[in-house]
Design a protein around this nucleic acid. Structure first.
Lengths: 257, 257
DNA sequence: GCTGAATGTTCCTGATAATGGAACATAGAT
DNA sequence: ATCTATGTTCCATTATCAGGAACATTCAGC
């Protein structure tokens, strides 16, 4: 059960650079991760040689083209993302607001893909970003439809906005309502002024993700919550149909170099 | 100047999984990369523990959420991508065809970002994908405006389609024309039936990338090449304006853990 | 339900390959 | 022009990883 420390350190470096909004130098990274400068330099050089990182003219490091390519290849490999993408784009174009797909990955609820709306004022979630469970529409859906894979984690629930429900009772009630109605909403509970409406995507009765529309609260009112639910449900239904084969059988055929 | 072999192997693994269109098991990967099964397993386990890879129900490995997140964070970090994105989306929405941004990264000409068109038939380049220099509009622009960073690499030029120009003389002529006119086109030279029109993005007179519209050849005719050039130029000009500060100064402020 | 052939996982030892301190080089600032 | 902070290289020391082999698990065929 032991990890390779070298690889672990490399991953730490990538995460750190991913979080930072500016390129960082060897010394800064070494200090941040508490590694010797020479080791850090060697790791960075190895990653840079493969294009995973790049150096700017000041020799500082930032994420490279190869890393971007790997990530996006990974995205397309995800069957639910591949199947959902056209539906996202259609729904976003029709409704004019941002529509996104979320699911559980690595124990976190993350944005898997999105299609942005056309308005000047529009929600722009980050693909790959983790979102809180208790303060989002998709989180409540997850709690309602897949309680076995999500949990609020006992700890205190942060109040992102005045509208955030932070007591377990309150959230329980919302989750029960979501289970009953088959959709959930979030009215400025995470980000002030942003409302979200979400519907589940089920595969053989199991929750595999959620489709959601995110917009300024006024935008959601303008469209009408029920109209949004209807439109998202139509998309979710089509996704579910194309998701039919639950366990993609593998026939013969070896993988060669 | 030596690399860390462990990290190198990890990267190889990621690339291999990124290329494969299906999840792969330990044995298959070990065979493909010619590594012992146990070492491969250790690498995979390390990567999986960090969420860079994920295992499906059959225990096979595929790219994970963390990898996707890292890649997309990287994308947004790229100043030119961040500045160009809204312009891509606007232009794509207005023209109804796919508009993308390309630039040199790691010695290759790659698609940095895109906004897809709305048509049923539309070009869908892969972000992160490398494109050939001699058979694309953006490649010819690169040769015209940044000859110092691109090269055709002496070797024989592959003929992707009957329309591909494979002699250096032919391409030179096209490049000169591109330099003169300030835009380039590609009429089915790479992918049959696909035409592309591209304009350069310059920063202080230096070529930093290209904006291009890609569509079925008929789609390009319908819009009119010159109309496309005009529209792309307008976008490129706005990008250039917002790109002004060439060397983003760094003030004080340390990076904490 | 059992047998057999895959595959995935763990264990362990030797040797390699990574570590990290320190010296050297380079570029920016005062 | 000097100083200081940062990036890069060197090298001995040893911790860490490689890889063979045993073990566990899953699946297919009988």
């Amino acid at each position: 059960m032991d990890s390779l420390s070298t690889v672990d350190n490399a991953i730490d470096l990538l995460f750190h650079l991913g979080r930072s909004d500016q390129p960082l130098g060897v010394t800064a990274l070494a200090r941040a991760l508490d590694l010797p400068k020479s080791s850090t330099h060697r790791l960075l050089a190895t990653l840079a040689r493969r294009g995973v990182l790049e150096q700017d003219e000041r020799r500082r490091y930032r994420p490279g083209a190869a890393l971007v390519a790997l990530g996006l290849q990974g995205l397309d490999r995800d069957p639910i993302v591949a199947v959902t993408r056209p539906e996202l784009q259609l729904a976003a174009a029709e409704l004019g607001e941002t529509v996104f797909l979320a699911g559980m990955r690595g124990g976190q609820l993350v944005v898997l893909d999105k299609a942005e709306g056309s308005g000047f004022l529009r929600a722009a979630p980050r693909v790959g970003e983790a979102v809180p469970i208790h303060a989002t529409a998709v989180g409540k859906l997850a709690l309602a439809f897949a309680p076995e894979v999500v949990s609020l984690g006992g700890a205190a629930l942060s109040a992102f906005t005045p509208a955030t429900a932070t007591s377990h009772e309150e959230i329980d009630a919302q989750v029960r309502r979501a289970a009953l109605r088959g959709w959930a909403e979030n009215r400025g509970e995470w980000i002030p002024g942003m409302s979200v409406v979400a519907v589940p995507i089920l595969q053989e009765g199991r929750w595999v993700g959620a489709l959601a529309l995110a917009a300024a609260s006024a935008g959601v009112e303008a469209l009408g919550v029920l109209a949004i639910v209807d439109r998202l449900r139509a998309a979710a239904r089509r996704v579910q149909e194309r998701l039919q084969p639950p366990a993609p059988r593998r026939r013969g055929g070896k993988e060669a170099a």
